[in-house]
Each structure stands twice: as C-alpha cells, then as structure tokens.
Design a protein around this nucleic acid. Sequence first.
DNA 1: CTTGACAGGTGTACGCCGTACACCTCACGC
DNA 2: GCGTGAGGTGTACGGCGTACACCTGTCAAG
Lengths: 219, 219
Amino acid sequence: MTNRPPLSRDRVLRAAIELADSTGIESLSMRRLAQELDVVPMALYKHVANKDELLDGMLDTVVGAIEAPGHDTDWKTAVRRRILSARQTMLRHRWASRAIETRQAPTPAVLAYLDSVIGMFRRGGLSVDLTHHVMHALGSRVLGFTQELYTTGPQAGPPPPELALAFPHVAEVAAAAAHENGSVVGSGCDDQFEFEFALDLMLDGFERLHEQRWTPGRS
Amino acid sequence: MTNRPPLSRDRVLRAAIELADSTGIESLSMRRLAQELDVVPMALYKHVANKDELLDGMLDTVVGAIEAPGHDTDWKTAVRRRILSARQTMLRHRWASRAIETRQAPTPAVLAYLDSVIGMFRRGGLSVDLTHHVMHALGSRVLGFTQELYTTGPQAGPPPPELALAFPHVAEVAAAAAHENGSVVGSGCDDQFEFEFALDLMLDGFERLHEQRWTPGRS
DNA sequence: CTTGACAGGTGTACGCCGTACACCTCACGC
DNA sequence: GCGTGAGGTGTACGGCGTACACCTGTCAAG
C-alpha cells in the first residue's frame, strides 16, 4: 500500500533492538515488531528463521558493537577499559544481559569478544590455567554485567578445529581445561572449583580491604 | 472423580517446584501444572493469585530452605559456608537463579537471606560502607550463582521502618548507601562505582595471583 | 432439620502468542 | 512471452494466562 522501504534482515534486527530498548524485551513479540515495521507478522519470517534466531541476531548486533580499545597499555588497564566499554553497551540495551544468559549457546559475536579478552590476559603473560579460572571468576562481569556465562553444557572435551581457528584463545583455554582435570571426556571444567576460586578471591580481597581500614574515599 | 488429596497452596508450590526441576522453568505453565495435579487450570487460582505470585512462592520456598550454619567461626569461613550452602540449593533447582534475576522485587526469603549474610560481615567488624560494596561485589554470587542482584529500581532513599525492623542489616546498609552519595533522594547507590569496585577487586586479585606464579594446585 | 454462606473445583471464553502453509505479486533473465 | 524465485499476505492451529459465571459440598446458625 504505502511506499515503505523494503524489509531486510538488518532493518528487522534494528527495529527489534529499538523496540526492546524502549518497551522491554518481554513485550517484544513478532506481531508487535511486524506492526512497528508496518508489515504482516509472517513477513518477518522471510528474514529471520524464528524468534530465537531473531534474539541471537539482536545479541550479535549489540555485542559486535562493543568498541575495542587499543593495546597500548598493560593488560590490566586494557582489560579494564574493554570491560567498562562493554558495560556502556549493556547499559544502553538493558535486555541484552538477560538475553545472553537465556541463550543456550554463545553467539559468534560473544565468542569473539571473549576471545579478545582472553587474548589480553595471555598477552599479559598470565598462564592458560590462570586465565581460564580468571574468566570464570569474572563470569559475566566480563561483559559488563554479572552472572554465570559459561554454562556447563554437554560439550565434549576438545574444541572442534574450526573453532580453534576462529577463536584461538578460547580454544586454548578450553583445551587446557579439558586436560587439567583427569578425564579427557566430560564437561571440561570443575564448576565447584571455579566457583570457589572466584569466591575465595573476593573474600580474600574483602579481608585485605578490611584489614587496611578501607573507606569509600580510596579503593 | 478419583479421590485425590485436596489442593493447597503448599501442594501447588511443591508440585510447581518439582515440575520446574524436572522439565525446566520454560515449560512450566499453569495448564501443565494443573494437569500434573489432576485438576482443571482455573483451580490453581484459588491458591495462588497468578503465575507471577506462583513463581514468587516457589522462590521463597527454595531460598527459605537454604540451611544456615552456626556462627562458631570467623566471618570469612562463616560466609563461605553459607554461600556454598546456597549454591547447593541453587544447583538442585537450576531454574531458581534465572527466576530470581527476573523478579523485579526480591521476595521476603531472599531479603532475609541477604540480611543474614550482611549480618555476618557486620559481626566480623566490616564497616557498613565496606559491607555495602562487598555485597555488590559478590553480586548474586552471594546466592550461589553469579549475576546482578541489586537492581537499581526507583526505590526511594531511606528504607521504610517496617523493613528496618524485619531486616535490620539490609536497612543499615541501604541507609548508609543513601548517605554516601550527596543526594538523599535517588537510587541510593552509584552503580558505576559498585561495578568498578568489584572489577578492580578482582583484577587486583588476578594480578596478585599472576605475580606469585599461581598454579592450579593451590589458590 | 433447614438454610444460607462460603471455600474450592469447573467450564467457557477472550485475547495474546509463535508459526505452518498455501497463496499472491511482481521484477527479471531467458 | 514466460517461468522462476524472492518477498509480502491471509488463514488457521495449538498453546498460553486468566476473567467470569457457575456448581457442589461442608458446616454453623436458626
């Protein structure tokens, strides 16, 4: 009827992100999104496979937009900058953190982001083992919010080779995790160990702050 | 028809938890739950107000079941035990962590649990300020998983008095947070500060581990 | 014993959701 | 001129939460 611009996967994703930003992820429905695009609901399915795939696409778009800082400093401030940058992105799209946790498998953009952060630790000289546990300790704080990111799915021990090429740092850490505990088969990391690693790290930090009479003025 | 035991709020909650445990929270519907209880869907509404209230009830039930350890040790091991105990509970009900994050207001049982953990820090001598930031740093790790627990809702500055009576430690920390930043009105804590506090705490911990050549053998 | 109130289970119906499937339309290469 | 395929449409189905009117059995008051 009206002369509206033709749909495209990109336009669909963009509109979906905008809609989720403004009205919340829970009220993002295919029908509502179609209406926003002045189109019949089924038209969307010519551009995204289904709602899950739509969410994956939205997530990949926003995570892919996290800006990467330069590598011109020490690993600690580089990581700090990258994570705070991720946080800014996540604050702009508050539905994203929940959506990431809900997905069962990380999207390529999330994997790429993790790979880049792991790379920072490795370039800083941290061992593969330490880097692995450090990532668990950060949890989803690495993405600018807080929650368990590495769900212990039934993934096999060794990573498939094509993943190793695309995300070398992820693959390296995953391989080390598979070796560290005795069995080659199995989920690869000891959840309980990771949890206690992070917990003790924080409790030790709290204790240190307490002993040195920490006050809000200076961390 | 058959002589089945009469419904009750408790039986409904119990069945809902069992169903969520076995088939996942996403496939827990009022209709499915009613069918499990051999009852017509609308019968449930005589015992729970609606699905949200059902979820709150389920959450309160499982969080209320976290066992409280004795106070016969230092604060650090006491907190450690309590959190690991919470983790065991959360692992038994894997839907619970996601559900807690989804709720907008913490249920009474969650508040009571937070209050007890805050009490441990305070009894250990940590200042109100430090305790406040420490709770933010722990995030939802304090409940045995990882994610942001203290959503920055539009809550007013000073806590209502009845809350102060029921959860004195929560109230104390909330009051301190309201004072710490200049304005009495407003959300009470500086999200960015809390995030960086926790992030730096962990990065400092990582650095310390790296410098002392940490290996998986000993934390 | 009658009655009437009330707690608790029922049946129907509405508006939302995701999406399968058949269809229409129209630009474009042959 | 015509097939073909990309892209938008219309209808329909099964599932969801739940409003609302209804029925039924229990039990205290009269």
